[in-house]
Deep mutational scan, measured.
Amino acid sequence: MQRVNMIMAESPGLITICLLGYLLSAECTVFLDHENANKILNRPKRYNSGKLEEFVQGNLERECMEEKCSFEEAREVFENTERTTEFWKQYVDGDQCESNPCLNGGSCKDDINSYECWCPFGFEGKNCELDVTCNIKNGRCEQFCKNSADNKVVCSCTEGYRLAENQKSCEPAVPFPCGRVSVSQTSKLTRAETVFPDVDYVNSTEAETILDNITQSTQSFNDFTRVVGGEDAKPGQFPWQVVLNGKVDAFCGGSIVNEKWIVTAAHCVETGVKITVVAGEHNIEETEHTEQKRNVIRIIPHHNYNAAINKYNHDIALLELDEPLVLNSYVTPICIADKEYTNIFLKFGSGYVSGWGRVFHKGRSALVLQYLRVPLVDRATCLRSTKFTIYNNMFCAGFHEGGRDSCQGDSGGPHVTEVEGTSFLTGIISWGEECAMKGKYGIYTKVSRYVNWIKEKTKLT
């Protein structure tokens, strides 16, 4: 034993070699072989497995989906700052455009905790909710729209109204504003409101030439003092309507412009014939205590009207009353817009006519005020429907199939267009061939041609 100890002390290297040989010859039971080890760690190889990531292109799944990435790591994937920024906006807080917040056709661009709407022409605001041009839906104005110097929408209202708090709607500024039905039992019968379409306001006024200088022999019209197929109006439903009495009662109609003036057809009036105007009328054979009678003290036909040349060209006249009318729910003026808007309103496509005229061709006159909704007829169809001249200051309205029309005794009465609950004068009943005849239409004086003249002559002093 002493000898062994001496050998170990003198030859430590020998001992180490012996131990190493023993270990190498022993069977290893701690580690699995290569094949079995792979069965336990069965993990798919990654895209760049075996390579240094710093030297390969980034992978979106590896960089940002398996674990949260930084902007720089995302930049490695896209290799483009702009594309990385677009991805980053949604990656950080989701897609803010998912709810489609942009209105009126706006395009949404996502941002971090926010979004941006790219608005089409005519709109602005956070969600493109603000109209900035009158060309689109009248700028959301209830009545009139004008573009300011910086191309912003400025709404306005006709006389007797003021802008509401929203700067879009119009509200009454006087007790009985024009064009409004205020009798409670008839307010439910107000005709369907007309909503502004998209309009090209630059070209809204037709490029028409008034044929002022045409000389033409007097034409022989049949029954051209021209509501057939209409309905009984309720008291106060058309408070701007008046009836004219002269040699015979209810020979023509008219509309209240203001307390002192009536507008009617020029062919209705004769110099030297006494005319009485009755406002607030409903049943011409009954006294309903809503009527107001006034005498006409002055007749002003349009300066281009000449019955000797043509009885229905420039067929418009103004009547001055001896005493002002007292405005109330049964006696209310009709609204008159400017030339541009009167023309736009007419193009809405349908209007209402009213009167006490004959209820059928050569038949009896109506006792109760009649009204009828009539569609506008395109000019080409209008011209083809008659052998008589249709001037540019006239328009056609009615039904091709016949059966409904204005008729004798309705002449001078109103053709009105309702705009968001307020009625505007767009025409004056003038003439036609018979009444409600198939293929024939009622012919009306186009008020847009005469609004400046009306307003100039009827100013209240």
Rank of each mutant, 00 (worst) to 15 (best):
V92L: 10
I336N: 01
T194L: 06
T287F: 07
S25N: 11
S385A: 13
W118F: 03
C69R: 04
D131K: 05
A308E: 09
A266G: 05
G230N: 12
K39N: 09
N135S: 11
I299A: 06
K293G: 04
E67I: 05
G229T: 04
Q408F: 15
L32T: 08
Y371S: 10
T85K: 05
R226S: 06
I454E: 00
K234H: 13
K168D: 03
F399L: 11
Y352D: 03
S49M: 11
L327T: 05
C119E: 00
V257Y: 03
N151T: 10
C117T: 00
T264M: 02
E61K: 06
T271Q: 09
I214F: 08
A192V: 14
L130S: 12
L24I: 07
K457E: 10
P333W: 01
E286T: 08
V174T: 11
D338C: 04
H267L: 02
M8C: 14
A9E: 06
V174W: 05
Q185R: 12
G125N: 00
L20I: 08
G13Y: 13
A250Q: 11
S217K: 07
S99L: 09
C128R: 00
N135T: 14
P172N: 05
E434R: 05
V195I: 11
D33A: 11
C396A: 02
Y330M: 08
I256G: 01
S49Y: 11
N306R: 10
C117G: 00
N452C: 05
R358H: 14
N213H: 07
N147G: 14
V374Q: 04
G58K: 13
G125C: 00
F55G: 08
E320V: 01
E231C: 10
P239D: 00
A192R: 05
T381C: 05
K440R: 10
T290Y: 10
D198K: 10
V278A: 05
R298L: 03
N147D: 09
F399I: 12
G355L: 07
V202F: 14
F348Q: 08
T445L: 11
C102T: 00
I40E: 13
T84S: 08
L103N: 08
C102N: 00
M437T: 14
E98L: 12
S148I: 07
E165K: 12
Q219R: 06
K146D: 12
A308Q: 14
G13D: 04
T215L: 08
E35D: 13
G439A: 04
C155G: 00
F424D: 01
K234L: 09
P101I: 03
Y201S: 05
V4A: 11
L23N: 02
C335M: 00
A436H: 11
N80A: 10
K51N: 13
I443G: 02
I15D: 02
S169C: 04
F31K: 09
Q237D: 05
V202A: 13
D131M: 09
G402W: 15
L52N: 15
R298T: 10
S430R: 03
K339R: 15
C69A: 04
E320Y: 03
E401T: 11
L19T: 05
F87K: 15
E124M: 04
C157Q: 00
T276S: 09
R294I: 02
A317E: 00
F123Q: 03
V202G: 11
A250P: 08
I262E: 00
Y341M: 13
G253C: 11
Y444E: 00
Y305A: 02
L325G: 00
T133Y: 07
